[in-house]
Amino acid sequence: MQSNRTGYAFISPWLLGFLIFTVFPFVASIYLSFCRYDIISPPAWVGTANYEELLAKDPRLWKALWNTLYYASVAVPLGIVAAFALALLLNLDVKGMSVYRTIFFLPNIVPAVATSIVFVWILNPQIGLVNGLLRHIGVEGPAWLNDTKWAMRSLIMMSLWGVGGSVIIYLAGLKDIPASLYEAAVVDGAGTWDRVRHVTIPMMTPVIFFNLIMGIIGAFQYFTQAFIMTAGGPEDSTLFYALYLFYRAWRYLDMGYASAMAWVLFVVVTTVTAVVFRTHRKWVHYGG
């Protein structure tokens, strides 16, 4: 059915929203990134001052960028490996599998605010569950979220608790692999490990790729857990980019500077994603 007027009428809610909530703010934030702006008084043009400060005079920004890249490069691959391994296990043919699947998936649907609060409690150095259990085997655990070295590791471990969502995606992918491929591999004399390596993993690369991209984008948006659990501390060791941007914009009302930060974020995310996409032809297989 060809009809310009009807077509545009149907998509008009999105088109309008796109103009108001995407195009306008997108353009406005470029302008604001060259201004001093505190919401209360009108924006004042400062040229490239924000970008100069950002590049040369703000070590906290670099710390935040480093923390975010570190989290992305550790938590994302760890999450992929853990989810993939769990999915392989959960794809085996034993009784009660649906119960196991539910158990591993459940943490994924717990709201981030609740997860954060529960982990603050179980990671409490004196009276928390984790150090309590460690004491039983004679180990004095670290101060976790209060320790500059362990705070980031705590958040990374916590992220693994929520891998259940990706497990479901991998499981669906595993189900889509045609049995004939495995049969052919068996005929060729492939053992279990050969089948995983030469059939399962190559066939799953599109799903792994999807999870990788989503994981990277997610790391740059990482906010709620850090805000609630550590507020970026101790000593900025968990100051994530999105968190620092929030502080600059809403604590210090540096909306112009925060806009410049948002643009740097945009460039970094686009670059990292583009680089990953570049590698994509080398290792992602489509079709059988």
Binding site: F18, I20, F21, T22, F24, P25, F26, A28, S29, L32, Y37, I39, I217, F220, Q221, A242, L245, A249, M255, A258, S259, M261, A262, W263, L265, F266, V269, T273
Partner: peptide, 17 residues
Amino acid sequence: ATMALPGQVTMIPTFAL
């Protein structure tokens, strides 16, 4: 494409609006 756009880029002008 808008799905991949980081929310931070549009957040501040939207708040101002």
